[in-house]
Amino acid sequence: MRRVMIIDESRCVGCEACVLACKNENDVPAGMYRDWVTQEARGTFPELSLSIRSERCNHCQDAPCVTNCPTGASHYRGDGTVQINRALCTGCRACIAACPYGARFVHPDGYVDKCTLCAHRLDRGQGTACEEVCPTRAIAVGDADDPTSEVARRMRRASLYVLQPEAATRPNVAYVR
């Protein structure tokens, strides 16, 4: 099993329900975010385009945070996700410097925090909080190894892309347009 999240940019309207659902689900402190939404407008009036993306930890398969973590706190869970063992985390921030996606922050309790892909929910057979709230069904989470899954269907689309491919992190979070 390889858990992936494939986000359909064409569906997303940028409402940020995913951001709030995540904050409530995971009790993320005020002013800190495990996910966020970017809007990038390109062109000049009236020849314009807009891309809207819900972003988060990319759960990379070659994760610089894991490589650079001196204590082993940041680790591959074996299901496609990258997790942080808070008991091992010293809050040294090496992973924050290494992450190309700006996905990590120091929790006020002293450890580094980020998106867990709602592992606690996936383990119960639920979707992630952001996936389940999303009014436009832009977010899909599932097993990339299951060819009948919604994520596998999305991964077959020609518009599939990842953020910062030059970082060669092999993300498990990807986008379609």
Partner: peptide, 29 residues
């Protein structure tokens, strides 16, 4: 800013890589 390092925010980029991305994503751990 989110978290501690908002610096990457402005340099975030993306690129469509089609099937190449899929191959990259299909690797095992």
């Amino acid at each position: 800013a989110r978290g501690m390092n908002a610096l990457t925010f402005s340099r975030r980029r993306f690129l469509g890589v089609g099937a190449g991305t899929m191959a990259a994503m299909a690797a095992t751990q």
